[in-house]
Write a protein that binds this DNA or RNA. Structure first.
Length: 318
DNA sequence: GTTACACGCAGCACGCTGTA
DNA sequence: TACAGCGTGCTGCGTGTAAC
C-alpha cells in the first residue's frame, strides 16, 4: 500500500535528495561523494535510505557500470523540479528583503573566459548578494550543457541555428592571426590567407569555437586547413606560438598583454580579424530565473558601456 | 540548567565483484 | 593479478529530548 504524503515526508530528508541528485549527475557513488565532501559509504547509505523510504530501487549495476532505474529517472525529474522550486523560494525570500540574491551558474566557452569576469565584476557591484559560478568549457561541451539544461546561461559565439535557443549577442569577439615576435610575417603589411597558412599552423581541438570559426572561414574561401599540432586550450596555443612552434588564430581579448609586450605579433591577413559575437544563450523553452533575467537585463542595458569598457582594455597604453 | 540516553550521520577498515 | 568501485560492520561524534 502506498505511503501517505505525510509519512513519506517524515521519511525523506533533503540530504537524501541532494545525495541522489549528485549520484545521478555524476554517474557514480564515489564521484558524488567527492563532489559533496563525503565518503563513498556515506553516499551509499543515503541512497539506501532513500530507496527504503520510497520503496523503489533507484540505481542498479550492470557489470561495473551504474544505471538509473525507471523509478530513479522519475525521482530525478521530480528532484530537479524541487530544487528549482527551492532556488525560486530562496530568490523570493531575498526579494522580500528588497535584494536579489542566490546562485547564477554560467558556462562560458574558453574564449569568453577573458570577458566574463569583467562582466560579472560590473554586475556583482550592482547585486552583491548574488553568488556567481563560471564553468569554462569548449564549444562542444557548452552545447551538451545547453541540451542538458545544466546552467542558467551559456556564453558562447557561433550559436547553432538548428537548435531552439534564445541568443542575445552582446560583444564583438575578434579572432586575429598571430605569429611569434620577430616572425617574417609580422612586418608584412598585407598577407593572403594562403600565405599565412603556408606556415606551421597551431589549432585548437575539434569542438572548439575558435577552430570552427577558422574552418568556416577557410571553407568559404576554398582554402585547405592543415594543422601541425592540436592543443587543448587557447593558452596552450598562445604559448606554443610564443615558443616559435608556429602561427595561429586566437581571440584578441586573450592575448592583449602579449601583443602589448611584443611577445606576439598580429599578422595583417586579408579579411582578418574574423568578427564574431559573444552571445548569452539559453534554451527557448526555458524560463530564466529572476537572477538570470537580471543578468540578461544588465548586459542588454549596458551594451554601449560594455563596448566602451572593453575598447579601453584593447587600446594601446598611453 | 544539567545530565543521560537515543538516534542519525559520517569515517575507517575490510571484503566482494567485475574488468583490464 | 592488480585495481576500481561499492557494500557492510563497527565506531565516534554531534544533536535532540526527556528526566531530574
Amino acid at each position: 500500500m502506498p505511503l501517505s504524503v505525510q509519512k513519506l515526508v517524515s521519511r525523506l530528508t533533503l540530504r537524501q535528495l541532494q545525495v541522489f541528485k549528485a549520484v545521478y549527475e555524476q554517474g557514480g557513488y564515489g564521484k558524488a561523494a567527492a563532489l559533496l565532501g563525503l565518503t563513498q559509504p556515506a553516499v551509499s547509505a543515503q541512497i539506501r535510505q532513500l530507496e527504503q523510504a520510497l520503496d523503489h530501487t533507484l540505481f542498479e549495476y550492470v557489470g561495473r557500470k551504474l544505471y538509473c532505474t525507471p523509478a530513479g529517472e522519475v525521482v530525478a525529474t521530480n528532484i530537479a523540479a524541487m530544487f528549482a522550486q527551492l532556488k525560486d523560494m530562496q530568490s523570493d525570500l531575498h526579494a522580500l528583503k528588497g535584494q536579489l540574491a542566490g546562485d547564477l551558474c554560467i558556462a562560458a566557452v574558453s574564449t569568453a573566459q577573458y570577458v566574463v569576469p569583467h562582466l560579472l565584476q560590473l554586475f556583482l557591484q550592482q547585486f552583491p548578494a548574488i553568488q556567481a559560478r563560471i564553468d569554462v568549457v569548449n564549444r562542444q561541451q557548452a552545447l551538451e550543457r545547453l541540451a542538458d539544461n545544466r546552467d542558467d546561461l551559456v556564453i558562447m559565439g557561433l550559436v547553432p541555428t538548428e537548435r531552439p535557443l534564445t541568443s542575445l549577442p552582446f560583444l564583438d569577439n575578434q579572432l586575429v592571426a598571430v605569429a611569434p615576435a620577430q616572425h617574417k610575417l609580422a612586418a608584412a603589411t598585407s598577407v593572403s590567407l594562403e600565405q599565412f597558412l603556408h606556415y606551421p599552423l597551431l589549432l585548437r581541438e575539434p569542438g572548439s569555437g575558435t577552430r570552427l570559426a577558422l574552418e568556416q572561414h577557410c571553407q568559404q574561401r576554398r582554402v585547405t586547413l592543415q594543422a601541425v599540432m592540436e592543443l587543448g586550450s587557447n593558452d596552450a596555443v598562445k604559448h606554443a606560438v610564443m615558443a616559435g612552434m608556429g602561427v595561429a588564430v586566437l581571440p584578441k581579448m586573450g592575448i592583449l598583454a602579449e601583443l602589448r609586450l611584443g611577445l606576439l605579433q598580429e599578422v595583417a591577413v586579408a579579411d582578418f580579424p574574423l568578427r564574431r559575437s559573444w552571445c548569452l544563450v539559453y534554451p527557448k523553452a526555458k524560463q530564466p530565473s529572476p537572477i538570470s533575467r537580471a543578468f540578461i537585463d544588465f548586459v542588454q542595458s549596458q551594451l554601449a558601456s560594455i563596448d566602451r569598457y572593453f575598447a579601453t582594455l584593447e587600446a594601446p597604453p598611453a
